[in-house]
Amino acid sequence: MRTTTKQKIAFSVLFLSTLMVILPVVFVLGTIIKNGWQGISWEFLTSMPRDGMRQGGIYPAIVGTVYLVSLSIVFSLPIGVMAAIYLNEYARDNLLTRLIRLAIVNLAGVSSVVYGLFGLALFVTFMKFGVSILSGALTLAIMNLPVIITASRESLANVPYQFREVSLSLGLSRWQTIRHSVLPFAIPGILTGAILSLARAAGETAPILFTVAAFYLPKLPASIFDQAMALPYHLYIISTQIPNIAVKTRYATAMVLVGISFTMNIFAVIIRSRLRKKKKW
């Protein structure tokens, strides 16, 4: 076979594989939007469900998801970033740190329903937070920790070693070096990782199933010790538990959920490119 023919075949195979990645995304989004856009309205987004959730809106589920995601980042971001700093800047390469690294990689692979059960055992039952936003957010936070740690470590490791050397040679202590010469340059990557992990948290059902999610609540949650409705669980309910619900309502709910993740991802991209422009090397 001639080289040019081989070249063409290789090119086509690679191109088709790439296409295979895009196609499902296009189909999923296409189906959701086609079936759901008629269900989207201001009222749908901002009113309480009525008539056994067949009518009205999904406002409490949106609010619940926003609460959960915001509270979970409050826990996971500081802990994750600090752990990443320790692992990347301070920890020596010994058996303990290697075990920790292995644990982090494995935690990232644990199925989310296991996190849900763990949250139920630890936060709901043992620590007596009950089925509440706090329990759910903590569970999501723990699920997100490995992702945040890994992303933060990577962006810390990407800051050139020279920055640390110069900084120390100017008489900065190790902590000052991290604080002034490493962290500022790693922040775009850290934020991107955090936002992407949040987008994932927003869409997870299993971790909130036993820890926070309510089938239906007539009121919005008043504190973090209340139960809340959440979008992914709500979607699950209206798709499987409630007969005679309009197809467009289901798809519109899915569209809102996907829309939230999508917006967050876009947001992450914008933040990263903004900060990169200011502080790249």
Binding site: P160, Q162, F163, V166, L168, S169, L170, G171, K280, W281
Partner: peptide
């Protein structure tokens, strides 16, 4: 290190 300054091989200003 305040008393003993250092200049490195590659010019390495911060960005």
């Amino acid at each position: 290190r305040k008393k003993v300054g250092m200049v490195f091989q590659r010019p390495n200003p911060f960005p």
